[in-house]
């Protein structure tokens, strides 16, 4: 199963959602798989921070569906967030974990999930998130996305994807700071709120 194909399926289901996603090659893949979601996606570079940030966003906007596109390396970096989701039970958070069993962006050394013992979905269930599943086919992934985007409790799908990156895709040119401004202005416009307002004096 290719991550880019999964992204294309997920992107087709999204319109009003907000997305936080992880570092690495998945950034450029999402940028191309979901061009209509670029302003609604925060491209972050933080191992272990993606799902916690998405949960914070979900806590602040409980009426809005939030999607976390995390990774096996990112989730293993901070497993505690699964226990926090288990206790807090956000009704509006759908988490995808791209599990390619390697640290792809640095050339592919294995993560802990590469040896057939570590099961992130099982860890999530043990942490109090019963709707945590592993998808190995595109059909399974699409079905979990449909359910996860409609669920009224936290829903996690661990997508077992190949280590290959989609070739010949356009690179994103913006950095983390520009991405934040784009995302915040999108949230402001779509929610009718002010997050980064004017100074007292100009």
């Amino acid at each position: 199963m290719k991550r880019f194909d999964c992204m294309t399926k997920l992107a087709a289901m999204l319109s009003d959602e907000l997305v936080i996603l992880s570092l690495g090659a998945s950034v450029d893949e999402w940028y191309n798989a979901a061009p209509h979601m670029r302003a609604a996606s925060l491209f972050q570079q933080q191992l272990g921070c993606v799902t916690p940030q998405a949960f914070g966003l979900a806590a602040g906007l409980p009426h809005r569906r939030i999607v976390s596109l995390d990774t096996d390396g990112g989730m293993m970096f901070n497993l505690g967030i699964l226990a926090t989701l288990g206790n807090e039970q956000p009704k509006n958070l759908f988490v995808v974990v791209w599990d390619n069993e390697c640290y792809q962006s640095i050339g592919g050394p294995p993560t802990h999930t590469a040896f057939g013992r570590v099961d992130i979905a099982a860890i999530a269930r043990g942490a109090g998130v019963p709707h945590a599943y592993t998808a190995r086919t595109l059909e399974e992934f699409e079905d979990h996305c449909r359910k996860g985007l409609a669920a009224a409790e936290p829903y996690i799908v661990v997508a077992k994807v190949a280590g290959a990156v989609q070739p010949d895709i356009r690179r994103k040119h913006s950095d983390g700071r520009e991405d934040k401004y784009i995302f915040v202005r999108h949230v402001e416009a779509s929610e009718g709120i002010t997050i980064m307002g004017p100074s007292e004096h100009n």
Partner: peptide, 11 residues
């Protein structure tokens, strides 16, 4: 990280 996400929500 959760606080960072809350910032992005406007809360």
């Amino acid at each position: 990280a959760i606080c960072g996400g809350v910032f992005l929500s406007g809360k």
